[in-house]
């Protein structure tokens, strides 16, 4: 911890780097000193009875997921790139959640506290270490998706949930893109309490994951299959499907990968935007609220009508209609008065 503080203080410009699974976040000019959080790794405190854990920022998600799974718990925001070695801190910096965020919310909804070094080199702890806290401004949430522009994270506290007793995955086939959007919206507004709701762009398919007691899942699966043509995936097939999805296996391995925030009704427009770019592929997550677009190496992200963040590859980190207000610069100056961390537009 003191090493981290020293490292931040000793350089004019600083950027933190985790496992590098979202390299665009730390793609900054050479003048920046890159601080690796690799040694800042380990679970500091895990209390299954509290539904909370605290871990150092460089802890691989894989380690955390395995530890909490031993006690029948999981990270409900459903982290991605876990197998690739993604760290907890990097995932916060990227603001990335997986398909399971559909049910209980994303990473922002499970972060409780952050310990970080601010631009003045001070080690600060804000938020709390219990599941409920309303004291002070919600700085932990503010760090989600902030790409290290306001501080270097040292330690994070999160809420976890008990893992559902069983999972069931169904694949549904829509007639066309319009039917796919309708199904996304309709499935989201049912009694089923869907755990994940995903859609492919290249084919008009939808995947629904349910969580709960196996006996209950039998009944819900039957009801869904009675409404739309559906196929239930076998256990191994489902596990492979979700793990490949979390690893962005559908995307170009060495190309550009970006996330966009949209509304379910815009899935059709998103499909058209992706199809307009030669070689581009796309995926729709989170019931149509999250889109991913992947481009072959060298291709530039097209101008989009949605706010986007580039996770790897070329192009601006944040693009689309990202609104800029005077207060944003003022907040940046408040947390990083010497402009030690990358700028909001870097």
């Amino acid at each position: 911890m003191t090493e981290l503080v020293d490292a931040v203080r000793s350089a004019r410009r600083v950027v933190a780097v985790g496992a590098g699974t979202k390299p665009r976040l730390a793609q900054v000019p050479a003048e920046f000193r890159r601080i690796s959080t690799a040694k800042l790794s380990g679970i500091v405190d895990y209390e299954p009875s509290e539904f909370t854990f605290t871990a150092l920022a460089g802890t691989p998600l894989r380690e955390i997921a395995a530890e909490v799974a031993q006690r029948g718990q999981y990270l409900p925001f459903d982290p991605v790139l876990t197998d690739a070695g993604a760290t907890l801190g990097g995932t916060v910096a990227a603001g990335l959640s997986g398909p399971g965020r559909f049910r209980f919310g994303g990473l922002r909804d499970f972060i409780l506290g952050v310990r970080f070094v601010d631009g003045s080199g001070r080690l600060l702890r804000l938020g709390g270490r219990v599941v409920k806290n309303a004291a002070g401004f919600d700085v932990p949430k503010f760090f989600v998706g902030a790409a290290g522009r306001f501080g270097v994270m040292a330690e994070l506290t999160f809420k976890v949930f008990p893992r559902p007793a069983g999972l069931r995955t169904l694949r549904l086939d829509a007639q066309d893109g319009a039917a796919q959007v309708r199904m996304l919206q309709e499935a989201a507004n049912t009694r089923w309490e869907i755990d994940a709701l995903e859609a492919a762009l290249e084919e008009s398919a939808i995947w629904i994951r349910l969580g709960g007691a196996p006996v209950a899942l039998d009944a819900l699966t039957a009801e869904i299959a009675a409404r739309w043509p559906a196929r239930t995936l076998g256990e191994a097939e489902a596990a492979t499907f979700w793990s490949e999805l979390a690893g962005f296996r559908w995307a170009h391995a060495d190309g550009t990968l970006a996330k966009v925030a949209m509304a379910p009704a815009q899935v059709g427009a998103f499909r058209a935007a992706v199809r307009a770019v030669p070689g581009a592929r796309g995926w729709v997550s989170n019931g149509g609220n999250t889109g991913y677009v992947s481009l072959p190496a060298g291709a530039a992200l097209p101008a989009l009508t949605w706010p986007a963040v580039t996770l790897r590859g070329t192009g601006p980190l944040w693009s689309g209609p990202t609104r800029r207000f005077d207060v944003m610069r003022a907040v940046k100056a408040a947390l990083d008065p010497e402009n030690r961390f990358p700028n909001l537009d870097d």
């Binding site: 994303g106 760090f143 949209m262 609220n289 999250t290 706010p307 005077d326 207060v327």
Partner: peptide
């Protein structure tokens, strides 16, 4: 300050710092 700002939007996803959360 009198500045009128808009943070977040209708999506359940977001990009960039969580100004709404702050």
């Amino acid at each position: 300050t009198g500045e009128v700002v808009e943070f977040g939007g209708p999506s359940r996803e977001q990009t960039g710092p969580d100004w709404t959360g702050l």
